[in-house]
């Protein structure tokens, strides 16, 4: 392979990097982000341990790459799921559906967030910024139309996120055998909308 042309060498290098990022994401989901050694990732990916460090100078760089890739995928998926002029129910349902698709790793991020490098928290904030954008747009529209009671955007967002994150971080208590968002998502959406129902005179 010494004579492989630069293009195929670059492609191979990119493919190995992608494999490492995807394998790391699976391993972090399974064992935790801070608790997974790079040796486990290399073994699961079927590469030599040293290969990890050819692509990522440190373990922290690998974690940052995984989280950055994850953040981009979640944000893109969220935008795909939320249609223009979506109702508040549509946005909340899309958020639940999106998080359900990425539930394992997202839960790890929420649980371990404060133990991880700043770049990790920035990625998590980036995901929250994307959902808060859609949520605020829909809520403002519905409050103006009198369909929900007015509520400060940050309190609406944090009430919703507090609810979702509580169920996620305690998933072992609420849904030990499966997805907590699949089981409780619709109920959480109904509950938040109930809280926001316009007050009767």
């Amino acid at each position: 392979m010494k004579n492989a042309d630069p293009v195929s060498r670059t492609l191979r290098k990119e493919a190995t990097r992608k494999l490492l990022v995807e394998t790391a994401l699976d391993q972090y989901t399974l064992k935790g982000i801070t608790a997974t050694p790079t040796a486990d990732i290399a073994r699961a990916a079927g590469v030599a341990h040293g290969t990890v460090f050819l692509h990522f100078s440190t373990q922290e760089a690998l974690v940052a790459a995984v989280i950055e890739d994850f953040g981009a995928r979640v944000t893109l998926r969220l935008h795909e799921l939320v249609a223009q002029q979506a109702t508040l129910r549509d946005v909340l349902t899309a958020h639940v559906r999106c998080l359900e698709e990425f539930e394992g790793f997202y839960t790890r991020l929420v649980v371990e967030g404060r133990l991880l490098p700043t770049s990790t928290r920035t990625t998590l904030l980036g995901i929250q910024t994307a959902i808060s954008f859609h949520l605020a747009q829909a809520a403002d529209r519905e409050a103006q139309e009198g369909r929900i009671a007015p509520c400060p955007s940050h309190l609406l967002f944090n009430t919703w996120l507090g609810l979702v994150h509580y169920y996620l971080t305690n998933g072992d208590l609420f849904a030990p055998d499966g997805s907590v968002l699949h089981k409780y998502g619709p109920e959480l959406v109904d509950h938040l909308l109930g809280l926001l129902a316009p007050k009767k005179e």
């Binding site: 910024t129 808060s132 949520l135 605020a136 940050h154 944090n158």
Partner: peptide, 8 residues
């Protein structure tokens, strides 16, 4: 400003 307004 967006982050302050929407996430507090």
């Amino acid at each position: 400003a967006f982050i302050v307004r929407n996430q507090g």
